[in-house]
Design a protein around this nucleic acid. Structure first.
Lengths: 200, 200
DNA sequence: GCCTTGTCTGACAGTTACTGTCAAAACACA
DNA sequence: TGTGTTTTGACAGTAACTGTCAGACAAGGC
């Protein structure tokens, strides 16, 4: 895994990371709207064309999906006694914990941007459809059960339930632990609201 | 109310309706992306500037909010024995029923566009934050209860729960009754998934 | 080392959604 | 009819994308 997968691949990964890092830095410094793709490309020392090859839109630099394959796996494999919502919390929580603190800095910056820039907030919500779908499938796997409308609704409701209460925390949640605490509190609430009916 | 509110207002309303009608017609004929704002403006016999005065973005021609003040009112005033989800169904259902069939045609066209054009679908989901907020407040009013995080989560979950199952109906739902049936079936499911805990 | 093959990059031109400004036109009201 | 306000159209400008194409660069066989 950590062994070199070819010079080409490594270079691509580095370019991508550089673009994202520089972009976030500029967004923070000058504001999202005021930072042009051209400026980002210049800061990352690539051409605008290259920028768009790595990120299809300017938004996507900030909105990389927060529910990845690893999170899904942790959700499915979570201790059996946990409820669905608890398992989800568990998955996200351990994900945050495993994050190197350098990455967490970036993550934190991303979250602040999403919270503060309306356009990004909007994009984030729009992007939630994918996590919903992923969660639905993951629930199916965790329960060893066909994905039906009940599961799809449950998944959508679980993600949708967080939309209005997330922007709430105006405080910054700079360190991982505070964020996790917040998350746990929220999801405990969510667990009392949601119930997945038995199949059929 | 129905008496003329001045020539000016009437003309504005007509212009707005014309723009929207022409836009939807062109979207249907040529496709959403292939129809430029300039073309819409020309078809509606206004200037592009005027188009943007009536609709801040091209998307907004299609994405006029489906949860308006009247729906909220019907929700709040729905029979007391109905559950929250049932009351919501009731509100939407009666809203559809009251729609003149000409308007329903347009509504139907809009729904098809939203379903079929990815960009619009995305926009629709992004726009759901507002209905969520409206629903949260409406729930507070209906229950005569302060809007807290439980209510916010419930509202978000109720709307979010529909996201994955709505695109499902590939069939067209051309007539209002079929649509209502579909809606009722969905929301009955939703009612078993969601529970609003008592305050505190 | 060298050459071929496939991939990545940069330059460029073009489209279009959207913004802001300003003078002219259309309406409201006396 | 005249005056003040609102609405409109023309125009210029910005910036996010899209598509194309030739040149640079890495991978792998010789």
């Amino acid at each position: 895994m950590t062994t070199s997968p070819g010079l080409r691949e490594r270079k691509k990964a580095r370019t991508r990371a550089t673009i994202q890092r520089e972009a976030l830095r500029l967004f923070q410094r000058d504001g999202y709207a005021a930072t042009s793709v051209e400026a980002i490309a210049a800061a990352a020392e690539v051409s605008p064309s290259t920028f768009f090859r790595y990120f299809p839109t300017k938004e996507d630099v900030v909105l990389t999906d927060f529910m990845d394959a690893a999170t899904v796996e942790r959700f499915v494999e979570a201790p059996a006694e946990l409820s669905l919502v608890e398992a989800l919390t568990h998955a996200v929580r351990t994900g945050i914990a495993e994050l190197p603190k350098e990455d967490f800095e970036l993550e934190h910056l991303r979250n602040r941007l999403i919270r503060d820039v309306p356009e990004l907030r909007r994009g984030m919500v729009a992007e939630m459809v994918r996590p919903m779908g992923l969660l639905a499938e993951a629930i199916g796997r965790r329960l060893g059960r066909e994905v039906d409308d009940d599961i799809r609704m449950f998944a959508g409701a679980a993600i949708g339930g967080m939309v209005l209460v997330m922007p709430e925390h105006g405080h910054d949640l700079g360190d991982p632990e505070a964020l996790v605490d917040e998350l746990v509190a929220r999801t405990r609430r969510l667990d009392r609201i949601l119930t997945l009916p038995d199949p059929e």
